[in-house]
């Protein structure tokens, strides 16, 4: 589908949506007028009439939502798929080799648990799974949203449930150019996700870089592997890229692969079907999201294979 066809489809969806809204407004107005007339004629209890009016409005809104999803649901599905093909997949293919893009899928909760990098909280969701190769480096990534359930009791003894986001952003996995046995976790000071599982299991390691120790926590199963991975040069690179991200970042060196969690509180590659399509803005946004992947390979020099083929 071309951009123009996509715009046509969007106009069709918006048109149908407007019609639905208009019909709903008329239906609500008619219902309210009829209720008012009934109230004046029957001289019923005023409070009863108000409750009746509220029920009518509520039912109308519910019907509106159902009708909208029946009328527009399939079109919105097609729009979202085509939108991601036109504005995301196309640019992913330009930048990466062997691209696999599954907007509805993500890195699984079980995998995140097995890596032991993040606590998967009480509600886990992920989408926009991408895998591919950049400068010869295999990578996988997806958006991840992890929430914690909180329950409070009000003064009447009613339990109120609320959800607190503990991580929202990107989880990326890259081939790493060194082989190592230990599990090493490096998190920036502003990485806010609580209940980090490895904090209890590993020992805290102090590096010789005072600035690095001030801004990052390093936990590892052994000192040697932590110093082997975190060379002075690599620590400098980690400091630089984390500064550029302007958010909490965590690096997990597990099974000779580098796992990066970027807690930027964003859901990347997403677009509201009712927003006007501004091609330049959307392309710019897609390229910015893609750059988050390439930046880590480029800045951390992951394609340096100096150590990969050691005997």
């Amino acid at each position: 589908m071309s951009v123009d066809e996509l715009k046509q489809l969007q106009l069709k969806i918006i048109g149908k949506n407007k019609k639905c809204n208009l019909v709903a407004v008329i239906a609500i107005a008619v219902a309210l007028v009829l209720t008012a007339i009934w109230y004046l004629i029957s001289k019923a209890d005023f409070r009863f009439a108000i409750v009746l009016a509220l029920i009518e409005v509520g039912i109308s809104i519910l019907v509106l939502v159902i009708v909208k999803s029946l009328i527009n649901g399939s079109d919105i599905k097609v729009f979202n798929k085509e939108f991601k093909d036109v504005f995301v997949l196309k640019y992913l293919r330009q930048r990466f080799d062997d691209v696999v893009y599954r907007p509805g899928d993500g890195i699984g909760e079980r995998f995140v648990e097995s890596v032991g990098m993040l606590d998967t909280g009480d509600r886990f969701s992920s989408n926009d799974y991408i895998s591919g190769k950049y400068k010869g480096i295999n990578f996988e990534q997806s958006d991840v949203h992890i929430e914690e359930r909180h329950e409070t009791t009000d003064k009447d003894g009613n339990k109120i449930e609320s959800w607190k986001t503990i991580f929202k952003g990107r989880l990326m996995i890259f081939d790493f150019n060194k082989s190592f046995k230990a599990n090493i976790q490096v998190s920036s000071r502003d990485f806010s996700a609580s209940r980090l599982p490895w904090k209890k299991r590993f020992s805290k390691i102090k590096m010789e870089d005072v600035e690095f120790n001030k801004n990052f926590s390093v936990y590892s199963e052994n000192d040697h592997d932590a110093f082997y991975i975190l060379t002075p040069h690599f620590m400098q690179k980690i400091k630089e890229i984390t500064k550029k991200m302007s958010c909490g970042v965590m690096f997990g060196f597990v099974d000779s692969r580098l796992h990066i969690a970027v807690d930027n509180r964003e859901d990347s590659f997403e677009y509201d079907v009712f927003d006007p399509i501004d091609e330049q803005e959307i392309i710019g946004d897609t390229l910015r999201n893609i750059k988050i992947i390439t930046a880590f390979v480029d800045e951390l020099d992951l394609n340096n294979n100096l150590f990969r083929k050691g005997v």
Binding site: K178, E208, H224, D225, F227, Y228, T231, L306, F307, R308, K309, G310, V311
Partner: peptide, 15 residues
């Protein structure tokens, strides 16, 4: 390539 990796390990051990 091996010596490069060995050097990295030696540097890590030294540090």
């Amino acid at each position: 390539q091996s010596i490069a990796d060995v050097e990295e390990h030696l540097q890590a051990a030294r540090r």
